[in-house]
Each structure stands twice: as structure tokens, then as C-alpha cells.
Design a protein around this nucleic acid. Structure first.
Lengths: 115, 115
DNA sequence: GACTGATGCTATCAAATAGATACTAAGTGC
DNA sequence: GCACTTAGTATCTATTTGATAGCATCAGTC
């Protein structure tokens, strides 16, 4: 086993200074979890996301999507139509993150109000 | 298939008014995800949790644990020793929630800094 | 018997974030 | 010119977070 193959073991979400804390903070968030889940269905534009993520404000939606883009989880594409069309699409990384988030949402839906 | 067996389908985290939104908001949170993960190792007292959840403040730890208790995810036990000993332990519900959260933490640790 | 130490919680203040709403930009159609 | 559409920013307030200090309890020490 080479040292390179063990690289991932250096990441520890319990360590305050570990860079993966940022990612956990980003993903362990209501709106991120919902946005990534919605985008699993394919690229979507802003208005559609706003409608699906019931209760989110314009500002928080913009901020959430920007943070996800900055972390490489999704790609933002502007189509120079009029009025402007903006689409968001998950990257491979985002598709990967979507899996555990889907399980979390699913667990919540199946276990609330049943105990 | 009876109606009762379909009950869980009424929960939809995308619906703003669904009670499961509260649970998603609680679990999709950095400190909740870390606290529940730590408690998977068994009951632990406050100081131990504070040490493991590097960077958390006393106040936020208290608040986080209280919210988790209020939602039935953990049980708080006070042992009348001196100085007082307080232990937190996951309930069955908490143990269930721990699974998807573990996968999320694991995904983060394996996918940060590798793209 | 006052003094220190340990533990867990709350009180207090500043800083950051969320949320609600209004406004801007750019071009189309009337 | 004027209204309409879409996506985003600006603005203001409310809520939450974070850092610290303080409190209560009582055992052990001198």
C-alpha cells in the first residue's frame, strides 16, 4: 500500500482545522441537501429550483447555489437569451455527494411521526 | 396494501409545511452530524463530547444536545455525583439517524481534496 | 472553615447568517 | 414609451452563532 493510496485518511471531520470541515458544513445544511437532491433530476434553472425548494428566499437560494458552485459540486451556465436563462447542473462530485444526502432525506421522510 | 402502510409517503422534505422539515433542519447541521456520530461509540458525557467536537463552544454544544433530545434522538441522564455527571446516549431513533449521517461524513472525508 | 478545583449550564455581548422585500439590468412585445 | 420576464443584488431586520465570563455544587486541602 503506497502513501498516496492512504491520502484520504488524513481527512477527519472531527478535526477543527481539517479542510473537509468546510465541505461538511456546506453539505450538512437544509438548503444544500434539498438543492442537490432536486438537481439529481437533471439540470434546472433558477425559478424551477426556487419553486421546488419551498420556502427558500431569492437571496439564500443564490448564496447556496454559489457556495455549491465554488466547491465544485455544480456548474452554472448562462444562456444569453432574453430574458436570461441560467441553468444549474451537478458535477460528478455533486452526483457523488447526492447519494448520502438522498439517504438522509429518505431516512427523515420515513422516520418522522412514526415513533 | 393498506392505507396505514403508506403513511410515510405523506412526509416530503421539499414541502415547507411538512413536519419532517424540522427534522431535516436539525440533522442537516454540522454539529448535529458530528455529535450523533460521536455518540455512536456509546454514551458520553459533556466534556468528552466537547473535546471530540473540536471547535464547538459550550453554549452551542448545550443547544445542539438539547435540540437532539427534544426530538427524541438522544437521552440525557444526570448522575447526582459531585461534581455532577451528565451522560448523553442515542435512542433507537438516534441510532437510525446515525447511519445516513455516517455515510455523509465518510463521503466528505473521502472526497475532499481529491478532485 | 475559607479556598481551590472540577463539571455542566446559563447569561451576555459582538459577529455572522438567514429571511423578507424591493430594486436593477436587459431586451421583447404592445 | 410602458409593461413584462428572469436572475441577481441591495437593504434592512431578526435570528443564530460564537467567544467568554459567571454560577452552582460539594469534595478535598490546608
Amino acid at each position: 500500500m503506497t502513501e498516496l493510496s492512504e491520502d484520504y485518511q488524513r481527512n477527519d471531520v472531527y478535526a477543527a482545522m481539517c479542510p473537509c470541515r468546510d465541505m461538511l458544513d456546506l453539505l450538512a445544511n437544509k438548503w444544500s441537501a434539498l438543492a442537490i437532491g432536486a438537481l439529481e433530476d437533471g439540470p434546472q434553472r433558477t425559478g424551477e429550483l426556487k419553486r421546488r425548494l419551498e420556502g427558500i428566499s431569492t437571496k439564500v437560494l443564490s448564496q447556496t447555489l454559489k457556495k455549491l458552485e465554488d466547491h465544485g459540486l455544480l456548474i452554472r451556465t448562462i444562456y444569453p437569451e432574453v430574458p436570461a436563462r441560467v441553468e444549474y447542473e451537478l458535477t460528478q462530485l455533486g452526483l457523488g455527494a447526492a447519494q448520502p444526502l438522498k439517504q438522509l432525506r429518505s431516512w427523515v421522510e420515513h422516520n418522522v411521526g412514526t415513533h
